[in-house]
Design a protein around this nucleic acid. Structure first.
Length: 425
DNA sequence: TCTGGGGTCCTAGGACCC
DNA sequence: TCTGGGGTCCTAGGACCC
């Protein structure tokens, strides 16, 4: 028995979630838009077949989508998060280890019975997930994370594989690695693939066989790791425990540009409230914050600015963080600029248990306890009833510049039982 | 007219210390 | 005129991921 790595993801995850809660759109083209209805971030197979590309700005394709009668949805992260949780719970029961990698993707491990292909095992898991969660998944199996990613890619690419591929059982992987273009390899992005192509490396097999020294010289251990993983040498371990966040950022594009300090302040306050509530959810404290803003990146006189400030005592208190953030907003604001985006990043995060109180200052302790209880209460109410049910006086809830979300599905996911179950044949 | 958001890791270089 | 060297910590920026 040897341990193998599984890579499992939901097919066209956001689109599958939307189809799940609205079966009337099943079988028709569907795309899901990013925040602010900016770009296309997911499309179902029908939309793909009709030639709708990924990542394109919505406004450029609006007419085409209408012509082709393709359904459009604004993204509904609450829904995708709920379905993701259910999916991961089920996967955890069926794997030995599980690392949740993203909202729609996980790495797992299981033992391989001697020399046995895991196709049948994968097929059963697929059916189980479809019956219980209602979304299709793909499963890639290999000796390392990079190879299991490639397996998953091949599982999707080839119809006959029906969503499962096990490259770990294949002795001579060359014909399969030849099928995978170098920029499809996990960890090889735009820049690296340009460099690799200039060296004559075009696919995963050539990448695996290139000189270790050559890639190490250019991309250090990062490049070397990918090469080794392609050779079947495990370099990127499974990380089961979800480690503490290192930073928390909240940013949004405005539907209409803003140009006043007051509006920028309102936006920043709103983002700090979201960020600090995340901080409390993860039981963490922050002692530094960055605020940033910019004009349209595609405009001629592109302007961007950011400022970072320290917070003396690590905190998760909304009011304390707001105070620091507003001092920083003053610094980054420039009049007469059409600002299209702003955001905040909390860093220097630590676990709440390390929170240091100023021991002999009872005034501080009383104030601190009061703040904690108040923040906690606000979080509770907002978690139950939606993010903006209760807020602070200084944050205005809906503005002209609030992100666009015109095509939102109307599904409420607070009660998951309302989501229909779909049974596979 | 309209081009997303939230993360991680790595590295080079500066600041600082002895 | 001669102007150390090594270690650590921090930060900004690059590259990548979903």
């Amino acid at each position: 028995m040897s341990k193998v790595i599984l890579q499992i993801d939901g097919n066209n995850f956001y689109a599958s979630c939307e189809q799940l809660v609205d079966p009337s759109i099943k079988g028709k083209g569907l795309v899901v838009l990013s925040n602010n209805d900016g770009c296309i971030v997911a499309r179902n197979s029908e939309a793909r077949k009709m030639g709708i590309p990924m990542g394109q700005p919505y406004f450029k394709l609006k007419n085409k989508l209408t012509q082709l009668n393709i359904n459009v949805r604004s993204s509904n992260y609450e829904l995708y998060g709920d379905i993701s949780n259910r999916l991961m719970q089920l996967l955890r029961k069926n794997c030995e280890e599980l690392e949740i990698y993203s909202i729609d993707e996980a790495f797992g491990t299981i033992k391989r019975p001697k020399e046995k292909c895991l196709y049948k095992w994968g097929k059963n898991l697929r059916t189980l997930v479809y019956q219980n969660i209602g979304i299709p998944i793909s499963i890639g199996i290999g000796e390392t994370k990079v190879l299991s990613k490639i397996s998953n890619y091949l599982a999707k690419k080839t119809q006959n594989n029906s969503g499962i591929f096990d490259i770990g059982i294949i002795e001579n992987k060359d014909p399969y690695l030849n099928l995978v273009k170098v920029d499809q390899v996990w960890g090889i992005g735009k820049r690296m693939s340009i460099w690799l192509k200039s060296k004559g490396i075009t696919n995963a097999r050539e990448l695996r066989d290139m000189s270790s020294n050559q890639i190490k010289g250019k991309y250090g251990v990062v490049g070397l790791r990918i090469l080794n993983e392609l050779k079947g040498i495990l370099c990127i371990p499974i990380n089961e425990t979800s480690s503490d966040r290192k930073e928390i950022s909240v940013s949004r594009s405005f539907s209409d540009p803003i140009d006043s300090l007051e509006e920028l302040n309102q936006a920043i306050i709103k983002y700090v409230l979201i960020a600090s509530s995340k901080l409390r959810k993860y039981n963490q404290l922050s002692s530094a914050i960055t605020v940033f803003t910019n004009t349209n990146i595609h405009s001629k006189d592109f302007y961007k600015s950011k400022a970072t400030g320290e917070i003396n005592i690590p905190t998760s208190d909304s009011r304390t963080i707001i105070k620091t953030s507003l001092e920083l907003t003053q610094k980054i604001f420039k009049p007469y600029r059409k600002l299209t985006k702003a955001g905040v990043i909390l860093h220097k995060l630590e676990r709440n248990k390390y929170k240091q109180n100023l021991l002999f200052n009872s005034e501080f302790i009383r104030e601190g306890l009061y703040q904690e209880r108040l923040n906690h209460l606000i979080d509770q109410i907002n978690n139950r009833n939606g993010r903006d049910t209760i807020s602070w006086g200084s944050s205005i809830i809906e503005n002209e510049w609030s992100p666009r979300r015109e095509k939102a599905s109307l599904i409420k996911t607070t009660n998951m039982e309302s989501i229909p179950k779909i049974y596979a044949n």
